[in-house]
Simulated scan of single mutants.
Amino acid sequence: MRAQHPDDRAPRETMLSMSGLAFMRAMLEGRVPPPPIARVIGYRLAEVAEGRVVFAGAPGPDHTNPAGTVHGGWYGTLLDSAMACAVMTRVPKGSLYTTLEYKVNIVRPIPPGTEIAAVGTVSHAGRSTGVAEGVIRGVADGKLYATGSTTCLIMEAS
């Protein structure tokens, strides 16, 4: 399998030609490529349902800070992806979304190499905004590592 190049992401027209839920399902099924950030950060799409998305991954040595613990940006990226993509599952065909703001609360450090699931769940999806919550839990032990919340802007493509 060849390495993914940033230009390998799905064209914008492809995304706009289907609902957000259909697009996320196409990604899960491998019909559209994952975003390049997933390769860099080391996570993959694991589940998709309307209003809910799960990403799985494990932080490695390249994701640690000078103290040797997993960098807070790794938690933030996983939660932003899970929460915002959960909102995406509620976005209609011909529309886009973007993160307006998000917050992360780290509960405990994730030991490098620990497989986690980042779950995003929508609590509101309207015409112009979407709100979601997220958690990062250990796959093997169910430990809570972080929580988050987001507000996304939903807009018609122009």
Rank of each mutant, 00 (worst) to 15 (best):
T129V: 07
E156Y: 00
P109E: 12
G73P: 08
G120F: 00
S81W: 05
D80R: 05
G142K: 09
V54S: 00
I106A: 02
A67T: 03
L21P: 05
G72H: 06
P109Q: 05
G134L: 03
A58L: 02
Q4V: 10
R108H: 13
H124M: 06
L78W: 14
R12N: 02
T150W: 07
G138Q: 11
A132Y: 07
T89D: 03
V91P: 01
F23I: 03
S17L: 10
S123D: 08
I106L: 08
Y43D: 10
A118T: 09
S81H: 06
V54C: 05
V107Y: 07
G113N: 06
P109G: 12
R90C: 05
P36N: 13
G30C: 12
T114L: 11
L28I: 09
T129P: 02
F23L: 02
V122T: 06
A26H: 07
G42W: 02
L144W: 09
C152S: 14
E133R: 09
P59E: 08
D80T: 08
T129I: 13
A82V: 06
Y75E: 06
G57M: 04
A118E: 12
R44C: 02
V32R: 00
G68I: 14
A82R: 06
D7K: 11
F23N: 15
Y97V: 00
G142Y: 13
V70L: 11
Y145V: 01
I37P: 05
I106C: 03
C85T: 08
Y102H: 10
N65S: 03
V107S: 01
G113W: 13
R25N: 15
A3Y: 00
M83Y: 07
G142F: 13
S17Q: 06
Y43I: 06
P109V: 01
V135K: 14
T14E: 10
E133N: 12
A22V: 00
A67Y: 15
P35C: 06
V48E: 02
H71W: 14
G148T: 14
